[in-house]
Design a binder for these strands. Structure first.
Lengths: 218, 218
DNA sequence: GACGGATTGGACAATTGTGTCCAAAATATT
DNA sequence: AATATTTTGGACACAATTGTCCAATCCGTC
């Protein structure tokens, strides 16, 4: 615990020299866990992918259960942060509602939903949620538990400002997210990597339908 | 200690005596595979749940890979059949479009999307699709590959009959399915078992929004 | 250059799981 | 009742994995 050199650390650089490998391990573990599931992921495979000896993993992160917990909780943080960073760009007083909402939606798709972190996370939670109940709880709290209400609040704001006609902002939020994610989810399911160019189209399609349903009629 | 319940199996009585245990094995395997993933599912666990000796599984279905393939392909068939059975009740010439479409949607939710078969299948394919490419292909073909176009055709029919305004029936089909499945998917993700009573509400919400967007204006 | 903590790789026991073999028992067929 | 088939459970070899121990080695710091 000699952090005498900790003063020199910049933002997210590696404070102890260890942090370097720690990150490599966590990234590798995220990949392997997501690809193979908890049972199928071997420590050896993770070590190999991280370019690190197996022992180092045990030194830094303890046993497999704990490694998994740390991975999920780190990715949860990152993913949540990314989402809210994009949500901050939600159009408040749009000139051209459809255009601006579509642009925002595209960003949300790119940076939050399509993002590898979020995908790994969803898959891991779905697959292993039953095995780690407490992990599942915190994911629920920081994932859907915060995101949907936040989107609902933004939509309610737009409604209050006269842009939308909403009976139920929470429902509208769920439906908006659903419309936004369909094609992406479909592509992911059929194993097709969505070309960058289609993301704008998806956002535009979702926005158009959403506004056909909820834009305030003039 | 053998269970002397030859007469007790009224459940899914099958004519060849073998078929009986075979079905028990396949059902148990579906459960365990879905819950534990391919790697995490042990033959012993499957045998125990099926109430069958491990050896019988090897006798009837060969090794683990083959067992998995058979399970997925059987469930694919069942799930697909269920879906199209419901799709046949799609309203052709509705008197009250919203009411009839909502009723149909509720049936689709109940019998096809919420159905255990379909859920296991989606999860298995998502988790293990990479491990069994050829299985993944047939699932794609018989799953999304047939279902979405079928729904699109029904919607196009309604549009042609003057009930809807659709630019792109295929897109509308994806969006309709997305709206329909959101809340259910959300519940599944957060581990909440959707009460029967809410299914009608989900169908009604989805239908209402869909029609707000696409019902032909009078 | 020497020190100390981190890292490595290899060996290890314990556990778990796969797939096979076989003889005894249960079950079905005639 | 006699016979054919399936099922059973236990034993087995084999492979993979986990988690630990330890001596050798690397690397930055003093």
């Amino acid at each position: 615990m000699k952090n005498s050199s900790a003063e020199l650390t910049h933002e997210y650089d590696t404070w102890p020299p260890a942090q370097n490998k720690r990150q490599a391990i966590l990234n590798a573990a995220a990949d392997v866990f997501a690809q193979e599931g908890f049972a199928g992921a071997s420590i050896d495979a993770i070590a190999a992918r991280a370019g690190v000896s197996r022992q180092t993993i045990y030194n830094q992160l303890g046993d497999k259960d704990n490694l998994f917990k740390v991975v999920v909780s780190e990715i949860t943080d990152r993913s949540s942060a990314g989402f809210f960073r994009v949500l901050d760009t939600f159009p408040d007083r749009p000139q051209d509602l459809e255009r601006e909402l579509a642009a925002f939606s595209a960003q949300l798709l790119r940076k939050a939903i399509c993002d590898p972190n979020g995908r790994w996370l969803r898959k891991l939670v779905e697959t292993e949620g039953a095995r780690f109940p407490e992990l599942f709880e915190t994911w629920k709290e920081y994932g859907p538990g915060k995101k949907y209400p936040a989107v609902a609040a933004r939509l309610a704001q737009l409604a209050h400002a006269g842009y939308l006609d909403l009976d139920d902002p929470a429902l509208a939020a769920r439906q908006y997210m659903a419309l936004l994610a369909t094609d992406l989810r479909y592509d992911q399911q059929i194993g097709r990597q969505t070309p960058e160019s289609e993301i704008d189209r998806m956002a535009a399609d979702a926005t158009k339908t959403f506004l056909r349903a909820f834009a305030r009629k003039l």
